[in-house]
């Protein structure tokens, strides 16, 4: 039987509720209705009193989760869309994220952000906000790209003592399938070489891993180019060592992200490589992001707004010219 990415999320939530009495789920429409993406379908019946519908109050939801975490629970918050988590930004970044540093008391809460674009979702149901959260100290930010990672990293996130922003990609929910939920057991904080290569490195995460692999296949067919694809898996912490080891092999770097271009994960990657591994570069380190506009509604505009295998391949061709 095949597991989709959303099945993995569901299984991780189910298993965490089953194995740990401290775990509870809180979010809008997650009870009887099972959540906007059915991540919690049937869980309220299985775990009565531990899967709670929240009012449309993202700030209060995050505050509640933090309070419950301080009292020994393991709250897992579902933001209906990552976009709406901006309402909760204060509770997350100012209240929860600073807490261990200020008081020495950790806040074991997990905030699930259904992230990223799908055709037709438009400006307020498509955003990728991982970089915003990563820029504040005190948070772990994870961005699984595979079914097994979605399962394992969510289970692992819930068990961490620190607040975790869990960015799950909506496009992968039903599009990505795997025969197993069991992965290679890499811990949060370690990147994975998804595809080995020697001519250039693509560093990316979440759904863009799959677009990068497609671009790599195109370039292999086109000229035998062997492109290495690094899946960051977590963007805070970033596994700089694995990125630099890859650049040492290839001499060329392209950082790809689905988020807006100003600053962010790709800028962070390029800056780290430029600072620590300048002597390993044969070409200027490059980045490819979404356009610097709100995310468009129409699928034709949307498809051109974010990086695609074609635009990733074009960026790589530029690098390979050096």
């Amino acid at each position: 039987m095949d597991f989709s990415y959303i099945d993995a999320i569901h299984a991780a939530l189910n298993d965490s509720l089953r194995d740990d009495d401290r775990v509870f789920l809180y979010g809008q429409d997650i009870g009887k209705f099972g959540g906007a993406f059915k991540a919690t379908k049937g869980l309220q019946d299985l775990y009565p009193g531990r899967v709670l519908d929240a009012p449309i109050s993202e700030d209060a939801m995050a505050g509640v989760a933090m309070g419950a975490a301080l009292e020994g629970m393991r709250p897992v918050l579902e933001m209906q869309f990552a976009d709406f988590s901006t309402i909760a930004l204060n509770q997350i970044v100012n209240h929860a994220a600073t807490h261990f540093y200020r008081t020495g008391v950790p806040v074991p809460m997990t905030v699930r952000l259904p992230s990223g674009g799908t055709p037709g979702s438009g400006p307020f149901h498509s955003q990728s906000l991982e970089a915003i959260y990563a820029s504040f100290p005190g948070l772990v930010v994870v961005t699984p790209a595979t079914v097994a990672d979605a399962y394992q990293m969510l289970v692992e996130s819930i068990q961490l003592e620190d607040p975790v922003i869990f960015c799950e990609h909506k496009f992968l929910y039903r599009w990505l399938k795997s025969s197993t939920l069991q992965g290679d057991g890499l811990p949060i904080g370690k990147a994975r070489i998804t595809r080995a290569g020697k001519h250039a490195t693509v560093v990316t995460y979440s759904a863009m891993v799959h677009e990068a692999v497609r671009a790599a296949e195109m370039l292999y067919d086109e000229g035998g180019w062997e492109i290495e694809v690094v899946d960051l898996r977590s963007i805070k912490p970033i596994d700089t060592d694995t990125v630099i080891a890859s650049v040492a092999r290839t001499g060329r770097l392209l950082a790809v992200g689905e988020a807006f271009p100003w600053g962010g994960v790709t800028a962070e990657i390029v800056s780290r490589v430029a600072a620590d591994a300048f002597h390993l570069l044969d070409a200027p380190p490059a980045r490819l992001n979404a356009r610097d506009t709100p995310i468009p509604y129409h699928p034709k505009l949307w498809a051109d707004h974010r990086p695609t295998p074609q635009t990733i391949a074009a960026s790589l061709r530029n690098l390979l010219k050096y």
């Binding site: 060592d241 630099i244 080891a245 890859s246 650049v247 040492a248 092999r249 620590d276 390993l280």
Partner: peptide, 8 residues
């Protein structure tokens, strides 16, 4: 940082 470069 000990990059694994496998002879390259």
């Amino acid at each position: 940082i000990e990059p694994n470069v496998k002879g390259l």
